[in-house]
Amino acid sequence: MHFKKSNPAKLPTISTTSLPDIVFILLFFFMTVTTIKNQDLLVDNKLPLANETEELTKTDRVIEIYVGRPKQEHGPTKDAMVQVQIDDRLVEINEVGHQTIIALHKMPEHLRKMAIVSIKADSKVKMGVIVDIKKQLRAINLLKINYSTIEGDVFRNLRNRF
């Protein structure tokens, strides 16, 4: 009776001043948590350094091949054979040509002729593996390759930085 009289027919208003803060906190949360998903790396991949590089600007026509020893959580032992990762899967060296063709066919048709194979090989890999991969790429007529590197002083490659 007393209360009713003092505040007649007015709905209590909810304060919305803190709403932007809440929204921004949410936004922050999502922006920091999300990463643009590239690929889960299944092999060790420490790229060599180089300074005379060219940028791979047209990413729509690139097939990425990761070369290295399988990571320990995926592979059985430390001395496992060097393997190749194409499209989230580990494949043996002698299947690279076949798997690359599969990756190539996922590309839109007009880009296939211009496809570039980006070889992301670990610096510890021996050239024999790279030579085998190159031979297979030649066999399937994918001739444009790019040895992926990190910008840096090349001579540091020669020192044992492992």
């Binding site: 060599p48 350094l49 180089a50 005379e52 670990d122 610096s123 510890k124 021996k126 030579v131 590197t149």
Partner: peptide
């Protein structure tokens, strides 16, 4: 190059030649 050559060495040489 030899099959046993390290990839890092090979890249260094390639880099110098391109350079």
């Amino acid at each position: 190059n030899d099959r046993e050559t390290k990839y890092a060495t090979y890249i260094t040489v390639q880099n110098e030649l391109v350079g």
